[in-house]
Amino acid sequence: MLRLTDIVGNASDPDIADRLHHIEHDGGVERVRLSRNDLARRRQRLVTDRGTELALMLDRGAQLENGSVLLLEPGRAVLVMLDEPQWLVLRAAHAAGALEIGYFAGNMHWKVRFEADCLWIALEGPREGYLKRMTHLLARGDATVLDAPAQGGTRYLAVPHAH
């Protein structure tokens, strides 16, 4: 198990990106994919896409982000990539419905964002669970569920590439 305690830097930093680029060509970049929730954890057990077990032990003030580099040494690097959340999208039927849905989501401590007349709920568990909790709101027509947007996957990480 590889024990790591520092965020070396970020892949968006040109110097680091350049080193990552060369290591990538040698096949030495390993990635760990984290949910937004897990980005908040300072201490956790992880497994890279190549099966390396990591024991991550960061300072309390450290903050992981998309592109955080946890290891950068000749021929080897470990890179954090953010898994985009899955969303449940609701369109409010009217102002009163928007208030009800907004209040309910806040009361449930769900993470949300707003776009026009739609409420986007970041799913941290099965979608069906969220729908069940809102059965009463949906049944009386406060909002409708839209088709799920393009599913997440891992966020593209822009690393400067010379060729």
Partner: peptide
Amino acid sequence: MSAQLNSHARPRGAARV
């Protein structure tokens, strides 16, 4: 930004559960 090697690390502070 300088990079540092950190493969021989020890925990800093206690785990919190």
